[in-house]
Amino acid sequence: MTAVTSRPRTRHPSRSRPGRTPPPRTGGRRRDWTALLYVLPALAFFGVFVLYPLWQSVWLSLWEWNGVTAATWVGARNYVDVLGDPVMRAALRNSLVFIVFYAVLPTAVGLLLAGVMSRIRIHGLTFFRAALFVPQILSGVVVAVAWRYLYGVDGPINGFLDLVGLGFLTRGWLGDFATALPSVGLIGTWVMFGLCMVLLLAGAQRIPTELYEAARIDGAGPIREFFTVTLPGLRRETSFALVLTTTYALRNFDVVWNTTSGGPGNSTVMPSVIIYKAAFNTRDYGTAATVSVLLTVMILAVTALVLFILRDRETGR
């Protein structure tokens, strides 16, 4: 049943001591070099298809290259160019807007609901959880097709507006400069809100009831109770939700590409869209690699920032 399709290709320190075969299962404290055999296949795949391309992204970002003719060393100039490029600036601005729609909004909704429902016995939890998770299991392309219909000129959203007498608001939501960005953003909110709700509700149900009772004895109202008990109790879940949703917001490609492709104009352009277009339309590999590196750094930085701000402090609040 082992389906290892490739032999380990990475040079690993274990190879520096060939032919050494220690007895199996010793109780001693020694390191077990043959145990590396269990680890090497996975590391080989990881090295070839993740670490090596990652390194190549950094390396490529220092060159100007169209994939055919000889590459020219340009050092940091790609970074200067990219950061000064109005399209990249639009992408960075859109990324911030997406963080609000994809991450802040769903997490806030989840936290509020967790506050409201923290100690209520929920009936039919299995059903609600399953339904709330449906957006998570659909491919981004399917999500895009569904929302393109909903947002369409003849779609249900315009149909509803007509029905309630707001017909003057109807439009092709994804094709309009004024509404494309928030419209795509709301798709992200839709994808993520259920996950945040389930995650934070489950966390809230684990907060010991004594804490609430103590808060009540101290005379805390519902709002103070939320800020002194619920919110600190959900620190781990909140940081997990924020890391997950922010990462998704920043890297998102499939939903954006299949709804607006970054348009109209550059109104919904994202770093991932720039990477794709630079590499596979205009054959500007240096720029594509540079944006790739910047995107990776952005995601690492945001992850580190969220984990740092919401780290467990002994002192509490």
């Binding site: 391309p53 990652l54 690699a289 995107l295």
Partner: peptide
């Protein structure tokens, strides 16, 4: 690998 966005390695991955 847990935090890396694979969008960030897609270009070299294509070359590879």
């Amino acid at each position: 690998g847990l935090v890396l966005p694979y969008e960030g390695v897609i270009v070299p991955l294509h070359s590879l």
